[in-house]
């Protein structure tokens, strides 16, 4: 084929390479004499072996993961999934925390934020909050169960809702999170361990114990900071001092509800 520089028509830009040098053209024909086996190349044995291997793999995969070809078998592991991977098993609370995180992100994060930082004018922070990191969850379970209103002081220095705006209220979230002690325990475990918080995990039993004294309280009866501070953060969750003068029967019932050792201690204290 032609070299543009040697072509007689090289002056026109349209004719680049259009001029065929006859000898060169023939040289190409001679050089490219069809190889007798071209187009007739037999299939390479390695290719055949590879295809056989693939078919074998296909058969075994089909047998193993087809759920016995049953219409109602939706899992590729009809005999049960193999043991969970070690990484998940390492943290026994991982499943609970994950469950709590999902609930938290779906319900609580709308106001408190997915990072627990709270939102100005909407909700106080949960990350690094002394309320959240308290010894026990007694106050937290009440807040979620019955809601909270009024001014709240967080970490001694932040005063939330100082004007005591009645429109800033957290209603009961009990129904929203699934109305079960287990769900509340999972959410609180997540909140108390996420974002650098240092609180201990919360069990469903702790939630049950914490809510036992207030099981008759209406969900619309929101707590205030003053009432909550009367509740010990940990322990049985009975208020140290009754908010109103209780009847003797109520005192008796409350004493009976306490574990033995606490009741003894309380009686000893009262008898002083």
């Amino acid at each position: 084929m032609s070299n543009p520089k040697e072509s007689p028509n090289a002056s026109s830009p349209l004719d680049r390479g259009e001029q065929h040098d006859v000898t060169e053209l023939h040289a190409a024909v001679l050089r490219e004499k069809p190889d007798p086996v071209e187009g007739f190349e037999p299939v390479n044995l390695w290719v055949v072996a590879g295809i056989a291997g693939l078919l074998f793999w296909g058969g075994s995969y089909l047998t193993q993961y087809s759920g016995r070809f049953e219409a109602n078998e939706f899992s590729e592991f009809p005999h049960g999934k193999p043991a969970p991977v070690a990484a998940v098993a390492a943290d026994p609370l991982a499943a609970v925390k994950r469950d709590g995180m999902l609930t938290y992100n779906a319900v609580c994060a709308l106001c408190h934020g997915e990072d627990g930082a709270g939102k100005a004018g909407v909700a106080p922070p949960l990350a690094a909050s002394d309320w959240v990191n308290a010894d026990g969850p007694n106050r937290l379970v009440r807040i979620v169960r019955h809601g909270l209103k009024g001014t709240v002081k967080v970490n001694k220095d932040v005063t939330w809702n100082p004007a005591n705006d009645p429109s800033i209220v957290m209603g009961s979230q009990w129904e929203a999170i699934g109305a079960s002690n287990e769900k509340l325990a999972a959410v609180l475990t997540y909140v108390r361990t996420a974002w650098g918080n240092t609180g201990a995990p919360v069990t469903a039993q702790m939630v049950a114990d914490g809510l036992a004294p207030v099981k008759d309280r209406s969900a619309d009866d929101n707590w205030t900071q003053e009432d909550l501070l009367k509740v010990p953060a940990s322990g049985s969750g009975a208020p140290a001092v009754a908010s109103a003068a209780p009847t003797p029967d109520q005192i008796k019932a409350q004493l009976l509800a306490l574990p033995d050792d606490q009741r003894q201690a309380l009686l000893k204290e009262l008898s002083k």
Partner: peptide, 22 residues
């Protein structure tokens, strides 16, 4: 198959003629 492989070519553009080197 040897004949089939030659089907894209004909008398005016036989095997060995490169087309489209523009």
């Amino acid at each position: 198959p040897d004949k089939a492989a030659l089907l894209p070519f004909d008398e005016s553009e036989p095997v060995g003629v490169e087309t489209d080197l523009i």
